[in-house]
Amino acid sequence: MSLDRRKFLGITALSSATLLTGSTHAHEIESKTDEVYGVLVDTVVCIGCRKCEWACNQEHGLSDKDLKSYEDKSVFKEHRRPNASAYTVVNEYRDPADSSKAYSMKVQCMHCNEPACVSACIVGALEKNELGSVDYDAWKCIGCRYCIIACPFQVPAYEYENPLTPQIRKCTFCHERVAKGESPACVSICPNEALTFGPRSKLIDLAHSRFKANPGRYHEHVYGENEVGGTSWMYLTAVDTKHTELPVLSAAPLPPLTEIIQHGIFKSFVPPLALYALLGLIMHTIGDKNEEQEVKE
């Protein structure tokens, strides 16, 4: 297993945290994050045509509205979120310095490298695929919605209106297409270079070459390169991302804290067994001796 430096530093920090819980389990995830596929969303060149929305809806049978109806730009007036019947939506953000400058931003599941939703899921219904997608298995799911709580991007949507077989719904990263070597439906239809599909590390290189080739056009930060441990989908923006709908997140992945606590008290079983032994000992040795003492009180 080859660890890149950032990862290594992360593990060192975590190991010191494990000392606190007395656990020897460091948070280990195979470092395959640079081999996975990803998509670079370049909001600077996105024209807001919403063809990606149409293609996604077609691919997943979510809507049969014709392509023409997606030319309606009035939807940009309100901020939309992906929901149970739309895995991706295009929103608009403006340059805070010059509000006449508007940019479009497609949003969907980020397919995190260390997904909080996967770590949270009680039955393993969500899994990070080695190609990069975070996949959902409805058959396993119990509908607890803890994944929704956990996701820092507020992505997983749930079929609240379905009383019997509600599912978690979110972007699938078209994992069947990707497995066949094709690009996701949205990327295939995108008329310009707003969406680029490829190995994640190549996308990061591409981002930096765009920064270099177009000085001043970009806020030179690849959103998703490091956020919450990195994401498969990454964003280029014209302005600081804090002026967009992308949440401000730190670089530390989210699962380690809870996983360290969990592994510390649960997986190794040492603390519970020690507590068991201690209580057994107390129960046995104190005996009924203090009964007399008690009566006096």
């Binding site: 770590s119 899921c121 039955v123 396993k140 119990i142 509908g143 509600p166 606590i261 969990q262």
Partner: peptide, 20 residues
Amino acid sequence: GRYYNIWHVMLPDMWQGNSV
């Protein structure tokens, strides 16, 4: 939402020790 699947928590191949 899918209460009839609650027994999945007991199936060893769905155990998810990372999940609180």
